[in-house]
Write a protein that binds this DNA or RNA. Structure first.
Length: 486
RNA sequence: GGCGGCAUCGCCAAGUGGACUAAGGCCACGGUUUGCAAAACCGUUAUCCUGGGUUCGAAUCCCAGUGCCGCCUCCA
């Protein structure tokens, strides 16, 4: 068994071997923090989170870097237009620095809710201006960049391999370029490394070329180099960034270092909403904060992971409702198993159970090894749950040790790797302590007395009345439980 | 116009040459269980967009067609 990734650079699935044994240096393009995160961010960062988790499960020491872009992206294209952060800050009547702070916090809040493990380093573009300037200087020195009217451009003609990631040819780029030809550039596809700030531009820094701000591809090259070295094991990002962003990163980094920039390029596919592309500029994006009002964050995480990361994901209420029921089923099994654990004693172990558990683990890991097939891995979790449910409802004795081992398997596969099974579920203790909990206890006790007396009409009356106010009762062999319907 | 991707049961979605008479979830139906339910379990439901081709063998490879989508302008 060996972990394989689909490498966008070679367009093939390749066995993963890191540059340095047992260590993985990974960089993922982070968000531009000028608005609340949306479900597209969720897909991207949940996907990469699972990759990090799986690499760690495989005992790699991973350093996961994900930038926070707090400057530089312009509204129109790479070289003209307004700075989006500045524009938004003006609209909200706050300082750009304030705006960036608000949305950075919002971003982490939502990623935490989705159960993404935080990156080891979340470097900000504005905190790395000197590194970026240094990189530009190096590129000028080496003859890959030129200064033009206070701005600096990368000379694409000098970098022969430009286009190797996106499969674009230079002539085509020049010929078919939709962008207006910028007279400051030597060639249409040259891209800005540093832009001169116009007098009214707020976000500006001193540089050898006058006051200005960094080009939008530069930060990723400069920061990944600083924290991860000149050759990264993995660079991830959204498919839409293959060109021009990642192509330009390669050009900058490889021109400067004369070393391969990235060994494995991993790109995740996009989110659509009811079959339509979702984009910031289209204004049809669903923020996570809105989505969380209707669905539990773990439902959204689960939903994302039922589709492969390289496939597009269509966000619809029907699909989310189905996912909601699916994850509930999984959780129910784990809950019952853990309840059983409370009163389990030492005893005998069901026959062959350990062979079966080992088999489930094996199939799960095989799915993950195949380019992170989370859909296949989740299917294994459902198969396992069927097995466990059957076991729990049988008359077989199940030792405490055995239940603990089953729980450990769930925690590793569903918890540590996929992040969809919590260590502990929201305890009912809390609600049982409050008035509702006490009242429910009285009602259930009363109803069970009625049931003992075979007063079915009255006991059904109670259950039906509760249902109309959104509470369901389950009469299980070991007692009656209740829960609120979402 | 250039580049790339996708099309699998009612819906979602794995599988990319032979254990596929195709995983798993949702929905539906039948059964077991239950006082009745719920939960759980068992069972039922596809030959893989169309047409050619390669092969002993194709959902999986090739060609053509149809449809959908993405990138080429910021976006995860």
């Amino acid at each position: 068994m060996a972990l394989k990734f689909y490498n966008s650079l070679t367009k093939k699935k390749e066995i993963f071997t890191p540059l340095h044994e047992s260590r993985v240096n990974m960089y993922v393009c982070g968000p531009t923090v000028y608005d609340h995160p949306h479900i597209g961010h969720a897909k991207s960062y949940v996907s990469f989170d699972v990759i990090v988790r799986y690499l760690r499960y495989l005992s790699y020491k991973v350093r996961y870097v994900q930038n926070i872009t707090d400057v530089g992206h312009l509204t129109d294209n790479a070289d003209t237009g307004e700075d989006k952060i500045v524009k938004r800050a003006q609209r909200e009547c706050v300082e750009p620095a304030e705006l960036v702070e608000i949305y950075t916090r919002s971003y982490f809040e939502d990623m935490d809710a989705l159960n993404n493990i935080r990156p080891d380093i979340s470097p900000r573009a504005t905190a790395h201006i000197p590194e970026q300037i240094e990189l530009v200087e190096k590129l000028i020195e080496k003859g890959f960049a030129y200064v033009s009217k206070g701005s600096v451009y990368f000379d694409v003609q000098k970098f022969k391999e430009y286009g190797k990631l996106s499969g674009r040819k230079q002539e085509e780029l020049d010929a078919g370029a939709r962008i207006e030809i910028n007279p400051e550039k030597r060639y249409p596809s040259d891209f800005a490394l540093w832009k001169k700030a116009e007098p009214d531009h707020i976000m500006r820094w001193k540089s050898p070329w006058g006051e200005g701000f960094p080009g939008w591809h530069l930060e990723c090259s400069a920061m990944s180099m600083k924290y991860l070295g000149q050759t990264l094991d993995i660079h991830g990002g959204g498919l839409e960034n293959v060109f021009p962003h990642h192509e330009c990163e390669i050009a900058q980094s490889e021109a400067a270092n004369e070393l391969p920039f990235v060994r494995y390029w991993i790109h995740n596919n996009m989110v659509t909403v009811n079959g339509q592309k979702m984009g910031k500029s289209l204004g049809n994006f669903i923020t996570l904060k809105d989505a969380f009002k209707k669905y539990h964050p773990l439902t959204i995480r689960f939903f994302i992971l039922t589709t492969h990361y390289r496939s597009p994901l269509d966000f619809s209420n029907e699909a989310l409702d189905a996912a909601d029921k699916g994850i509930e089923r999984l959780h129910n099994t784990v809950k019952s198993m853990r309840e059983r654990l409370h009163y389990a004693k030492d005893g005998s172990t069901p026959p062959n159970i350990y062979e079966k558990l080992a088999q489930y683990r094996k199939v799960f890991l095989e799915a993950m090894d195949e380019d992170i097939n989370t859909s296949g891995a989740i299917a294994v979790l459902f198969d396992l749950s069927k097995e466990v449910n059957t076991l729990l409802s049988s008359d077989q004795e199940i030792s405490r040790k055995c239940l603990e081992d089953i729980d450990a398997l769930y925690q590793q596969l569903g918890g540590d790797i996929l992040g969809i099974i919590p260590k502990t579920f929201e305890s009912k203790q809390k609600s049982e302590m409050d008035v509702l909990g006490n009242v429910m206890e009285v009602l259930i006790d009363t109803r069970n007395e009625l049931r003992k007396a075979k007063q079915w009409q009255l006991s059904d009356f109670i259950r039906n009345k509760l249902l109309t106010i959104g509470i369901t009762l389950d009469d299980r062999p070991d007692g009656t439980t209740w829960k609120k319907i979402k």
